[in-house]
Nucleic acid binder design. Sequence first.
RNA 1: GGAGAGAUGCCUGAGAGGCCGAAAGGAACAGUUUGCUAAACUGUCGUACGGGUAACUGUACCGCGGGUUCGAAUCCCGCUCUCUCCGCCA
Length: 423
Amino acid sequence: MLLLKKLRDHRDEIVALHQIKNFDSSTIIDEILTIDDERRKSQKTSDDLKANQNQLAKQIGDLMKQGKKAEAELLKSEVAQLKEQSKNMDDEIAALMANIDRLVLTMPNIPGSSVPAGRTAQDNLTVYKNYTDLPVLPAHAMPHWDLAAKYRLIDWELGVKITGAGFPVYIGKGARLQRALINYFLDKALAAGYTEIQPPIVVNEQSGFGTGQLPDKEGQMYFVNEDGFYLIPTAEVPITNIYRDHIFKADELPVKMMGYTPCFRREAGSYGKDVRGLNRLHQFDKVEIVQFQTPEKSWETLEEMRHYVAGLLHELGLPFRTLLLCGGDMSFTSSMTYDMEVYAAAQQRWLEVSSVSNFQSFQAIRLNCRLKAEDGTNYVHTLNGSALALPRIVASILENNQTPDGIKIPEVLVPYTGFDFIN
RNA sequence: GGAGAGAUGCCUGAGAGGCCGAAAGGAACAGUUUGCUAAACUGUCGUACGGGUAACUGUACCGCGGGUUCGAAUCCCGCUCUCUCCGCCA
């Protein structure tokens, strides 16, 4: 959510930056500002009326004490009138504000100055890659879903039986590989200074709103009707909401938190080879890193976080690239996003395994999470990133590390898996 | 699931129709003092939205939403949440 004051003070700048996101905000901002002018006028009127009422109420009190009943009654009727007027005014103000809120909520975050313009994923900028030539597998190489079945790592049909498509059952070394990855990611994040969190994996509506999943992405989350809870699509939601309605002191920042959770996504409308195997699931595991940072340092922190994630992929020895998303491919809430994609050599596809974003104050405003500064209160900046999402990592390991005899486990994981080969 | 109690500022906690944006203590911050640590003393110590170049000033907020009243943190109604006891239970 963007701040009204910012819209007023930097109107043209914001309109220009929104162009990069292919969003035309000029008319919306003007409409908002017009409504807000009206709101301010109405508020002045209402405030004055109320000030008047307050004063009269005091006078009435004094008159009553002095026993001047008649005079008091006279003032009472005057107050009644004022009250009616201010009440009408307040209704008007409420309507105006609701209108403003509704409009403000339709505006996406403002992209950072280095975000490239563009419409689709084609326009994303590859800012880093860790390979010179992509691996080429022999003709008999298998995609991960076949490998997973062959070595009994994942039972797809069983998942369908228990729940439905997109809920695979990991078995034996498949399950142990998952657990190894989780522990490896957690240990690395811990060493990088993040505090480990085990949050609830269902959240209330306010939390969903705070991080920006609600209201727009309502249909993407599983909903527990009876209690009004949402299953989290990412640990970002509960972890970021830890500091909803909180005011930080500057020396408390940055706050670095991380956690492992299962994630649930309805993925309505997905189909085809996008959803084959582990490529896209309804339930998957992820370790997420989250930071709260001062506005001055958030860009620096974004770089730090994406380098951290890249480091993990390096250690796993998977071919990957880092993309700087163009305006059109960025999420509604993000100000700048790096995506990390690993290569799955059998499918010959790139799979997104991490998305690292700086939200600036966009989430913080919704969260009402602020920073106490010398010159008043300000909003903090929030950032987060996957570090990492498991299924596609597993897919990439299986496909890239396959040999005729089995699958080689990346060296860094061996202490966690307890085995170095799957056959 | 049943019964009861409660929700006040960063925390503890008073406040029971006007003198309350709210006592007191603690924490925090600034200053004074003391040889350091510490202590003592003094001061500061909520947020939002308006008006004003500014000094300053208006309004709202005591869980949330209504109501009564000239006037509500205080009375009434509804909701939410928390705690305690009972039941069930990993």
